[in-house]
Design a protein around this nucleic acid. Structure first.
Lengths: 344, 344
DNA sequence: TGGAGTCAATGAACCGGTTCATTAGCGGGG
DNA sequence: CCCCGCTAATGAACCGGTTCATTGACTCCA
């Protein structure tokens, strides 16, 4: 019976205590760097641990201490290439602080978000960073308010009580729109993602603000929202370009939908730059190395990941901080060859 | 004191047992779908749980049961865009089976790999899927053999005792090389990643096999190995193209280094297709939508993720299966406009 | 009617740490 | 010399489940 074998193999605090000739409590204090332990005893215990090849059982620690040293990250879909950067940096900061990252995907469904929060609670996860499909969703808000651990929102801002890290998408969309209006474009199409979520909402705001500032009215028929996949971006682009009065510029604001959009233009034989000006809502190798290179909005996702982890750590430490801190990383517009003065 | 509040708020098996008028053991049996519990009692207990809003403490379960329902995934760097697909699918399969995914990055360093294995052991992780920086590393192999939980290797194959899921990179490289040789290319440069790891090794084998089959000798100076970042790919490309006798074709076998390589060619004013034939070691939007589109090797990373999770689940279930099963997903060559007959 | 056999339910012991009230030891002041 | 106060170490209780030997009820058959 392997469990028997394993059990007898496993070195426990008792064994270390016996080996070192001290009480189990002392071993525990050594493990936790308690100040009230003399150097001599500490060394004796550490020698015993090394000698026996002792390893703490984190499960048992969590059990008694009520904390797991786990931090969960739940996002819509970690298939989003640029998002990996966020996770990478967040994980590095958390690991440095002794935490392990739990990863889950919400598939952008409220019921999954709620189920995940419950699963995190059952695991006594110490902190959560997540996106939400819909910040207004009643049940999700209730689940969040009942969460016993701090929750930080990623690129969401409508829940005042929670910390959040966002990108300034409004600013980004404003820059794009002003840039295009400045080039003479008046028929600017826009593909945005889920309008129930912050990024799309604020991009729409930015667009409207820029239009308003220029005293121009946007054509609502050029706005395609809830574009969530590359395939949808393809169809939306194809449909826009088939209009009797097609757009002269296309702002692909939905994250990483640029591929679908370019595929559609290529299929229809429309040249980027000449036939239509194109702007990507987030920068990528594809945008940079396309012919012509594609004007794009850029922001520092790595910094977002670091900030998210750092803020969450502060909150978990229980520091006396005001509730609902927000941190917005700036966005910038990188102008490339895909945006040109409107033809005629 | 919040912990006090939380403690008193928490509903435990005792409370459920009292509410339902049964023993705690019975509640536990209901929780674990034990067969020896009558329908009537089961329903009474479930009502009590619902009424009190009971949630099991997974930590306590893990403590006694010795398993955590955690599966760890440790890869070199999850900044690799295409890898997200693997993780996404693996997570879905694992979640379906009631497991939660732990994520960590090895940064391709043996000592980190060893430390992570130890951390996973301390957390009583039930299974691990990981890459290795060096399959031959003594200490890593020792750590692996001492791991009490099953470990599955991702795209690594040199450890016979462990299950593994790989892509057939050798086949891919063979296809690429034959294709280029068939177009008349004799000076084929290749950028590969870490030669201590399986993917680069088998790509090199594939290249040599194809050369041998054609009775041609490769020029070793055109081989650049240990290209690990986009920046290194940039430099390697620049250096290759500055040779007195530069290559006529470039096989960017290192994963997702295509960007750096294309940047270098653009900087040097060398046209893809005309000036040099280019093949990407893994397909991407960038390869597909580049002008000209770039010939690439493709394989199903999503399937790899699913297979990895499924195989690991089987192993964790303790099924009687032979040790060290290997599953290789096929690779295919997608020929596009970037590879043309050699000019002369 | 009694005894063997089945099956469901019980609850105390246990998993491996941490916590904290208690004890032991020591130095210093009266 | 005694007592007080302080610090360091002790070890039993505890965290919240699961497990399993034991009990009790019930059926079946001689």
């Amino acid at each position: 019976m392997p469990s028997q074998t394993r059990r007898s193999q496993t070195v426990k605090v008792r064994d270390v205590a016996r080996e070192a000739g001290v009480a189990v409590g002392t071993v525990s204090r050594v493990l936790n760097d308690h100040p009230t332990v003399t150097r001599e005893l500490r060394e004796r215990v550490e020698r015993a641990m090394a000698h026996l090849g002792y390893e703490v059982d984190v499960t048992a620690q969590s059990m008694r201490a009520g904390r797991s040293r786990l931090v969960a990250c739940a996002i819509r879909d970690f298939d989003i290439p640029r998002f990996a950067l966020f996770i990478k940096e967040a994980e590095a900061v958390l690991r440095e602080a002794g935490y392990t990252l739990l990863l889950a995907s919400t598939t952008n469904r409220p019921e999954v978000e709620i189920a995940l929060l419950s699963a995190f609670r059952r695991r006594r996860v110490d902190g959560v960073m997540m996106t939400l499909s819909d910040e207004q969703h009643r049940d999700v808000r209730e689940a969040l308010s009942e969460a016993p651990m701090p929750v930080l929102l990623i690129d969401r801002d409508r829940i005042e009580a929670l910390d959040r890290v966002t990108a300034d998408h409004r600013q980004g969309a404003r820059l794009v729109t002003s840039h295009l209006l400045g080039l003479g474009h008046r028929r600017i199409a826009m593909l945005v993602g889920d309008t129930k979520a912050f990024p799309s909402r604020s991009r729409l705001e930015g667009l409207r603000e820029a239009y308003a500032a220029a005293g121009v009215m946007p054509d609502p028929r050029l706005l395609r929202d809830n574009v969530l996949s590359s395939e949808e971006a393809y169809r939306a682009t194809a449909s826009l370009m088939s209009l009797a009065d097609p757009p002269t510029a296309l702002f692909v604001a939905a994250m990483d939908m640029l591929g679908g959009c370019l595929r559609a233009l290529r299929t229809m034989g429309i040249a980027v730059g000449d036939g239509i000006s194109v702007v990507a809502g987030s920068d990528s190798d594809l945008a940079e190395l396309h012919t012509p290179p594609i004007t794009a909005i850029a922001w520092d996702l790595a910094a977002m990941g670091r900030h998210a982890a750092t803020m969450l750590l502060e909150r978990m430490r229980g520091d006396e901080i005001e509730r609902g801190r927000g941190l917005a990383v700036p966005t910038e517009l990188i102008i490339r060859g895909s945006t040109r003065p409107v033809a005629n």
